[in-house]
C-alpha cells in the first residue's frame, strides 16, 4: 500500500514538473496583479507629494522614489506572508511591475507639490 501510494505521488510529480508554469489560476493571478498596481500607484502619488513637501530637487527625488518602491515591495512581500510563490509566478511581478507607470505619477505629483509649497 505504502509502495503504491509512493509511486503514484512520484508519477504525479514527474508529470507536473514540465508544465508547472502553465498550471496556475489566471483569475486569481490577475486579482493579485491588480492589487499590486493599486498599491504602487497610490504610494507613488503619496511619495510625490512627500518629496515635493520636503523640497527634493534633481537626483535626490529619484533616489527617494527608488527607496519608496523598495519599501513598497517589502510591504507587498510581507503582505503575501513571505511566500511569494503561492501568489505570484515570479519575483519580477512583485519587485518590478508598475515601477515605470508609478514613476510618471510620482514626477507629476512631485512637481505639483513642489510648485505649491516652494514656488508660489
Amino acid at each position: 500500500m505504502a509502495v503504491h501510494s509512493d509511486s503514484a505521488s512520484s508519477g504525479k510529480k514527474s508529470s507536473n514538473g514540465p508544465n508547472e508554469l502553465l498550471t496556475f489560476n489566471a483569475e486569481n493571478m490577475q486579482n493579485n496583479m491588480k492589487i499590486i498596481y493599486y498599491s504602487r500607484t497610490f504610494l507613488s502619488i503619496i511619495g510625490g507629494v512627500v518629496a515635493g513637501i520636503l523640497g527634493f530637487t534633481g537626483l535626490k527625488g529619484f533616489v527617494f522614489y527608488l527607496l519608496l518602491m523598495g519599501l513598497t515591495s517589502l510591504g507587498l512581500v510581507a503582505k503575501a506572508g513571505f511566500s511569494t510563490h503561492t501568489y505570484f509566478d515570479s519575483w519580477n511581478r512583485v519587485l518590478l511591475d508598475g515601477f515605470l507607470g508609478g514613476l510618471m505619477s510620482f514626477v507629476l505629483f512631485w512637481t505639483f507639490a513642489y510648485d505649491i509649497v516652494h514656488i508660489f
Binding site: 486569481n28 486579482n31 493579485n32 492589487i35 493599486y38
Partner: peptide, 18 residues
C-alpha cells in the same frame, strides 16, 4: 499611514495554485 492604507485597502491576495 498612507502606506498602511495602500497595503490593506486593495484586498487580499488569492492563491494561484490550482
Amino acid at each position: 499611514l498612507c502606506m498602511w492604507a495602500a497595503l490593506t485597502v486593495p484586498g487580499k491576495f488569492l492563491s494561484i495554485h490550482p
